[in-house]
Structure formats: C-alpha cells, structure tokens
Design a protein around this nucleic acid. Structure first.
Length: 741
DNA sequence: ACACCGCCCGTTTTT
DNA sequence: CGGGCGGTGT
C-alpha cells in the first residue's frame, strides 16, 4: 500500500484498525483519497471486499469513490452506495417480511406523494387553510425523518390541526401500503423497521459488513443515525467522515449533533482532523475561515494550505440583477477568451430562480452553459408519463401511475370516469388495475368511455407480454403502442420538439441501463431512475459553463467560481413568517460555495432585484461584512480599478458613479450603502448598547465582559467573555443581556 | 370531456 | 414571471 502520498493525519486515518473513528475532513482536504486508501488498506490487511460497506449521500460521490477504489485495488470493490440505494436494495430482498409490501414496490417521488396527499385532503374534507398539500407533505416528512415515524414523539400537538395531521399521516401511510409503494423517507424508515422487527435480517448484515463507513455524517438525520448504529452495534467498526461546517441539509432533518456528539456516543472514538487544504488559494481559504468562525455550532478548525496567496477574492456590487447577469457573462467571456475552459467556471446561487437572468445573458453572449439540478430529467412530465406505463407493469398496485396515464395520451377518459372507476375499486377492495382487467366496470361508465378504457386495457395487455424484454425495447414499445410521439406533436405546441427529444432520451437511458446491467430488470431500471438526481447525471464537460445551486455544488470543485446574489434575504435566505431562519446553516452554505473555488472567486450582489415578478430593494448579505480580507473591484468591464487592500468604504467610493450610470438610484440603494459600507462612520464605542469593556449578565452564561462588537443597529454582534463559559457571540437584536456596568 | 381564461398563490435548498 | 386551480363556454 502506498502511504507515501498521504500526509500524517491522512495516514493515521488509513492505519486506524478497528473501533469507532471520526475523520473531521475540511473542504478540499483529500477526504475521498483518505477513505478509499483506508478501504484499500483494510482489504490489504485481509478484510474481504464484501465485508466493507461505504455509504455516501449522492450517487455521484458513490460513483467517484467506486472508481477510485477500482483504481486502487482492481475490480472487486466493496459495496458503495447512497443511504437510499442501500436501503432500497435491502428492502428488495426482505420487504415481504413487512406485509403487505411486495418486493416489486414502487418508489414514489415527491410529486407522486403530493398527489396522494391531495386526494387525502379532499377525502377527509380538510379545510385548505388548515393544511395545504405542501405543508402536510413537509410535516409528514418531518415526522418520518426527525421522529422516525413516531407521531407521538414528533410533538404535533393535540389541537385541531395536530389531530388532523395525524389522520392525514395515517391515511397517507395506508395509501402507500395499498399501492405497494414507498416514498423516499420510507426507504430508510422501513429498513430500520425491518432491522428492528426481524433481528435475524439485521444479524445477517451486521455479520456481513465488518466495517461500515458513513460519509458526510454531518448531514445524517435521525433515521440514518439509527441505521448506522444498528449496523455496527456488534463490532463497532464505524468510521464516519464529515465536516460540521458543511452541514447544509438541516431543513431535510439533518441533525448536526449526530457528528458533534459522536465522541459522546462513542467515548473510545479516535478523532482525526484533516485541515490541510489541497484545493484553494490562501486568499480563498482566508475568506472561508473568516466567515465560518462566526458560527457557534462547530468543531473549531482552520483550513490551511501550502499554496500561494493567489488572486484576491472579489466582491462586485451591481445596481440590479440584469446588470449583474450581463457583467457576469462578460466576466466569463473574458476568462474564456484568455483560455479558461467553459467547464472550469461555475456559477453558483442559493435559489434556482437566480439562474434565469444569467442564462439570458449567456445566451446573448453566445456562451454555452448547462443548468445542473432544478427540474430533474426524470421528473419531466412527458418522461414521467412514459415511466408510468412501466411502473404499472412492474407494480400492478401502483394506482397513482395508472391514474396518471389512463387518459395520457388523451383518449377521452375524463375525471368523472376515473372517479367512478376508483370508487368501484374501493368498494370491492381490489386494486384498480385488477378491476380494469376484469369485466366488473363496463356498466358504470358511458359508451364512449367504455371503448376508451377497453382500448387502454388492450395496450397494457400487449405491453405486459413484453415485460421481460430489454428495458430499451420496452420503453420503445410503450412509445409505439401508445403512439406517444404523435400525441406530443399534436398536443404540445412549441415544446413538442423538446418533449419528443426527452422521450427518446428515456429510450437512450434504457439502453444505457441494459448495457450496464447484464442481469438488469424493469424493477432495477425504475429504481435507478428514481434515485438518480440530476447532479448524478451531470457530466463535467469542457465546453459548457455549469450553473447550479450551492447545494448541488457540494463535493465539487472548480478553478473559477462566481457566487450570485449574496444578499440578505437570499443568502441568508430569510423568510418573513419564519424569523428563526437558521443563520448558521446559511453561513455554512456560503462557506460551501466559497470552498468550491480553486483559484478565483467572485461574489456578487445587487441593490435591486426582480423577485416575485417585481423589482425589490436588495441589501448586501450580512455575511459579506464577515469576509476578511476581501479585495474589491468595480466590475471588470466598466471601470477596471483595483484596490490592493480592499476595504468596505472603498466599495462605497467606487459605487458612487454606479447609481448615476444605471439611472435607477433609489432611496433603497442609499440605505443599502449605509447598511453595509458605513461601518466606520458609526461610532461603535459610543453608540453601542453594550460597548466594549462593559459588563453584562446573561441568563445562561452568567456575568461577562464585552470584548468585541461589530456591525450596527439590530444586526450588531457582541462578543462577551463570560467568567464561566468563555467567549460567546450574540446578535444584539436577539439576545437578552443585562448591562451591569 | 376538454380547452381556454383568468386569478391567486407562492418560492428555498434534494435523496 | 410562471404554475396550479377554479370556473366558464363549447
């Protein structure tokens, strides 16, 4: 085994033999390298490859790890997959132990679930102001993820809405069971249930996997935490890697304390910190470090590098989003002209909506780009329609898919008919498809509908005979039997071409699956399709500028990164009705964005931004004032003035001609300037409610002395050195402090 | 049954 | 600005 290329920390992680191990891996610290080497080392030491299990969060990460493993040890590779795929595979084998599920269960995506929830809300006659489908869906997911499906524990309360939620939850669970379907959360949840209810199954996997590795542990939720514990309960060979500073999935139930408390869970755990960064320049790391240090919930660590200082990080301010978009396009054009490949320049943003103006500018500038994420390919309407045919063939109880395609392509089966059919099915207690295949429904619908449904049934019967052909042929058969292409051409106007193209891409996906899986099945194909996100399908290409959310960019790196819209309200994303927004998570998000950059980093913000269809004032992100040091400059194409040691005031200075130029100077612009740039015009010593040196009392921390303040107004932060608990930082607007002196 | 119109709604982030 | 949904007209 080659240990020579590893640094001392990496090496000790590789050499750690057994027992719990926590690898705190900073961004760009060679984590994947370390864990693949570790696995290879274990195999070298006599572990069978089959006895290793590595769990990642994205298929992309799994694939990358897989490839690196093959490079290191040859073909026999350990089991490496995402939590979700791993659980799906376990369930395919054993779900029949959890009746009434069968092993051809269908995995429902959020859209499918939403449809069921809508039906339930209708059936239960739920007042729409009490529960929207969206809200109910979110709550259901929260119950599953945070409380492992235990309603009692989820604390939903006993008021009308809580009681209603309980009914919705139960009806939803029952609906899925009837359809032999599971949602994303169920994949994990049912696996935990399987392991708990069937100790023999658990024992089998505990025995098989002598070493379990969980990647990105900072993003695990309650169920994933339990899975990890269950799988390693006997041998305790649990190796986790993660970085509390990169936890960005709190909204999905990720529980940061899983990683923060790992050492309490496993007092004998070995902890290794990887802080040497091999990715970014010193300037970029300085910015990253200065930002993240403002977080309280973390394990302190400072990234360092042997690399050069590099280009300064630049913060650009624009008067509106259109200008931002044009200038970013010009910036990119300049980079491309000087030889940077398109694929080396990533444009990142907090919310998908921000991509549009930039897309326009890129098109205008003739720069090819590709959007990664947003609407996943397999979620497109026409693709899902074709897939629905496959799904109903695979799982005859999948009522959602059946209803979806009864009248797609349009064949004269309307809502009323569908409703009638569903009703008969319900009253006879048989699956809808069973009913349609029998002759117990014809009398209840009108003649026209009757012939239509019959012809639909005929199509399904024909397709059923081809069920075990190659996936590619099956997809093609669906398109031909249903005359799907004609349907698209006739029913879609402008988008017909694109829609048809997408449908044929699905055939291509089937072909790809067939070649990659010699013993593939329809079930297998559908599973891949379901669990594959857009980011997983994305292949880095030289000739397109990638545009994506920061969430999608996690785990990736680019020589040049542009982060758009770093404004209060967007990053951090602030929600009017939810003032308790997790600012620290937002800060981590920016941190993740910043640490994607290898050589050059550009951060932009605007004074006015089009949102919700109208122009609104935008304010620089509160995070910008935490960045140290930043060099700032006017946008490159207009006034190429550069400042060697940028200060906040210099932006103010540079910015003045800006308002005039755009002719859009608004009072808000001035306010924004003041908010952000006039830090030093404000006398911090005099006007602060808790000046430096004053003594204060805090309910939890006791008495302390103010050692530092920063910012102004309600956004002001105050750092207090408490006698008992040490230094803490607060936002003045949110903390209760009693001033003693 | 279905196409069309117009209103209102809301928007993070994804396996 | 865009999608979803309710209502209307054919």
């Amino acid at each position: 085994m080659i240990l020579g290329n590893l640094n001392p920390a990496q090496r000790s992680a590789v050499l750690h033999e057994s027992g719990p191990l926590l690898i705190l891996a900073g961004a760009g610290s060679g984590k994947t390298r370390t864990i693949t080497h570790r696995m290879a080392h274990l195999i070298d030491c006599g572990c069978a490859a089959e006895s290793l299990l590595a769990i990642t969060f994205t298929n992309k990460a799994a694939k990358e790890m897989q490839e690196r493993m093959e490079g290191l040890i040859g073909v026999r590779s350990p089991w490496i997959s995402t939590f979700h795929s791993y659980c799906a595979r376990i369930l395919r084998r054993h779900i029949e132990r959890l009746l009434p599920y069968g092993n051809s269960f269908t995995i429902y995506d959020a859209g499918d679930s939403r449809n069921i929830i809508k039906e339930i809300l209708e059936e239960l006659e739920v007042d729409r102001s009490l529960w929207s489908a969206r809200a109910a869906q979110e709550e259901i997911s929260r119950i599953k993820n945070a409380a492992c499906g235990d309603i009692e524990q989820a604390g939903i309360g006993n008021f009308a809405n809580g009681r209603m939620l309980r009914s919705i939850y139960e009806a939803y669970t029952e609906a899925l069971r009837k359809r032999n379907a599971v949602d994303f959360d169920d994949l994990l949840l049912l696996t935990v249930r399987l392991f708990t209810e069937c100790p023999d199954v658990l024992a089998r996997y505990q025995d098989q996997f002598r070493h379990v590795l969980i990647d990105e542990y900072q993003d695990t939720n309650a169920i994933q935490y339990r899975l990890g514990r269950l799988l390693t309960a006997t041998h305790r060979n649990l190796c986790i890697t993660g970085d509390p500073d990169q936890s960005i999935y709190g909204w999905r139930g990720a529980n940061l304390s899983n990683i923060l408390n790992f050492e309490e869970d496993y007092p004998d755990a070995r902890v290794i910190t990887l802080a040497q960064n091999y990715r970014s320049t010193q300037h970029i790391l300085d910015v990253a470090n200065s930002l993240i240090v403002h977080n309280g919930l973390r394990k302190p660590k400072t990234l360092w590098t042997e690399a050069a200082a590099g280009e300064p990080v630049r913060v650009y301010r624009f008067s509106n989003d259109a200008e931002e978009a044009t200038e970013v396009a010009l910036l990119i054009q300049g980079l491309i002209e000087s030889g940077t490949p398109h694929g080396d320049i990533a444009v990142l943003y907090r919310i998908n909506a921000l991509s549009r103006p930039v897309e326009k500018s890129l098109i205008y500038a003739g720069i090819p780009y590709s959007i990664v994420g947003s609407i996943a390919f397999f979620l497109r309407r026409e693709v899902k329609d074709v897939l629905a045919y496959l799904r109903i063939l695979d799982n005859p109880r999948d009522e959602e898919s059946l209803k979806r395609i009864l009248n797609v392509p349009t064949r004269g089966i309307g809502k009323a008919t569908i409703k009638k059919l569903v009703q008969i099915a319900r009253s006879t207690g048989r699956p809808l498809l069973d009913l349609l295949f029998s002759d117990g429904w014809q009398a209840t619908v009108n003649r026209k509908a009757e012939t239509s449904v019959s012809s639909f049934v005929e199509i399904l019967k024909t397709l059923r005979t081809k069920k075990s052909s190659k996936v590619q042929d099956l997809v093609q058969a669906v398109i031909e039997e249903t005359r799907f292409e004609t349907f698209l051409r006739e029913s879609r106007g402008d988008s017909a071409r694109e829609d048809i193209e997408n449908v044929w891409q699905l055939v291509a996906a089937g072909k790809e699956y067939d070649t990659e899986h010699q013993d593939g099945t329809l079930t297998g194909f559908l599973e891949v399709v379901n669990l594959l996100g857009d980011i997983d399908r994305w292949r880095r290409s030289e000739d397109k500028v990638p545009l994506m959310t920061i969430h999608s960019a996690k785990g990736l790196e680019f020589p040049v990164v542009v982060i758009l819209g770093v404004e209060d309200g967007i990053l951090p994303l602030l929600n009017a009705e939810d003032p308790e927004a997790d600012i620290e998570e937002e800060r981590r998000l920016l941190y993740v964005g910043v640490t994607r950059a290898r050589d050059q980093l550009f951060i932009t913000h605007t004074a006015n931004r089009m949102r919700f269809g109208s122009v609104r004032a935008a304010y620089p992100s509160r995070f910008l004032r935490e960045l140290q040091p930043i060099a700032t400059a006017d946008p490159p194409t207009r006034c190429p003035i550069e400042i060697d040691e940028g200060t906040l005031e210099s932006i103010h200075f540079l910015d003045e001609p800006r308002g005039r130029r755009s002719g859009q100077g608004t009072p808000d612009l001035d306010f924004a300037d003041e908010l952000f740039f006039d830090d030093n015009a404000f006398d911090l010593e005099e006007d602060a409610p808790y000046p430096v040196g004053s003594r204060v009392r805090h309910a939890d921390h006791g008495v302390g002395e103010v050692v530092r303040i920063s910012g102004i107004g309600s956004r002001q932060r105050v750092t207090v050195a408490f006698e008992e608990t040490g230094e803490k930082q607060f936002v003045v607007g949110y903390v209760k402090l009693e001033r003693i002196r």
